[in-house]
């Protein structure tokens, strides 16, 4: 059977485009916020590794939780091996 490569399509391959979902700020789902206490943090990045939102980034030696998207699931609070993250209630604006 002839391969399609011998008669290449004129249309370009579609590349994943559109806008990332980060346009959708999910931070307002949160009822409690994780707070990193930098003096305790060892920079092991376990909070980054286990964030289901992918909203923890590595800033130099320390992790940073981006509150625009954090839904407050508290997986990072639970998994932090040195208890450097605490969960604090959100105040209603």
């Amino acid at each position: 059977m002839p391969r399609l490569t011998e008669d290449p399509l004129k249309t370009p391959l579609i590349i994943a485009g559109g806008k990332p979902m980060s346009a959708n700020k999910t931070g307002n789902w949160r009822s409690a916020r994780p707070v990193i206490h930098e003096e305790k943090c060892t920079g092991c990045m376990i909070c980054w590794k286990f964030c289901p939102e992918a909203c923890v980034t590595i800033e130099g030696e320390l992790p940073k939780i981006h509150m625009d998207w954090c839904k407050g699931c508290a997986v990072c609070v639970q998994e932090c091996p040195v208890d450097a993250i605490t969960l604090e209630n959100e105040e209603a604006p």
Partner: peptide
């Protein structure tokens, strides 16, 4: 920082999953 898994991120924050999915 060295991490045990690649740092390149393909999952975008702001998705519609429940907390802790």
């Amino acid at each position: 920082v060295k991490t045990s898994i690649p740092q390149d991120e393909k999952l975008s924050a702001g998705h519609l999953a429940c907390q802790g999915c």
